[in-house]
C-alpha cells in the first residue's frame, strides 16, 4: 500500500528499527501516533500465556492512536514490534491536537467511543484466544 500524501504531510520525524526492536512498549506512558512507512510491525499484547500477536500492520497503517484519543492518564495498550527492518513515521502531535480540538464535542465523543470499542474488542478477542489455547 502506497502512503497517502496526506499522511506524509503530518510526518514530523522518521525512525528506523531493526527486526524485533520494540517501538512501543505496552504499559508505558506516551502518546505519539505512528505510521508504518516501510516494512511491517506486529502488535502484541501480554497475556497469562505469554505474548499474543493481535495484528500485523503494513505500510500506511497508523498505530499508537488509541493512547492519543484517550482521556486522562495514558498508557500503551499493546506493544508494537518491528517485524523485519522497518521505517516508521511519527506524526506531528501538535498539529493532530490542533485538528482534534477543532471538532465539535459530539464528533469527538463519537470517535472516542469508537476507539474505546476497538480497545475493548481487542481485549475480548485476546481473552478468548488465550482461553481456547
Amino acid at each position: 500500500m502506497a502512503i497517502d500524501p496526506l499522511v506524509y504531510e503530518y510526518v514530523a520525524n522518521e525512525e528506523n528499527y531493526p527486526e524485533n526492536a520494540v517501538i512501543i512498549e505496552e504499559g508505558s506512558n506516551a502518546y505519539w501516533v505512528y505510521v508504518v512507512l516501510e516494512g511491517q510491525v506486529k502488535v502484541k499484547k501480554r497475556t497469562p500465556n505469554g505474548m499474543v500477536t493481535v495484528n500485523t500492520l503494513k505500510e500506511g497503517a497508523i498505530f499508537g492512536e488509541i493512547a492519543f484519543f484517550q482521556e486522562g492518564e495514558v498508557t500503551r495498550t499493546a506493544s508494537v514490534i518491528a517485524d523485519g527492518p522497518v521505517q516508521v513515521g511519527i506524526l506531528d502531535t501538535e498539529r493532530l491536537i490542533t485538528d482534534w480540538q477543532m471538532l465539535s464535542p459530539q464528533l469527538k465523543g463519537l470517535i472516542m467511543s469508537l476507539i474505546k470499542r476497538l480497545q475493548e474488542a481487542t481485549k475480548r478477542t485476546i481473552a478468548m484466544v488465550v482461553e481456547s489455547t
Binding site: 496526506l6 499522511v7 497508523i62 492512536e65 506524526l91 493532530l96 470517535i111 469508537l114 476497538l118
Partner: peptide, 11 residues
Amino acid sequence: PPILKYIANQA
C-alpha cells in the same frame, strides 16, 4: 481534517 478521518477509518 483528513488525517483524523484517515485514523478513524482505520480504527
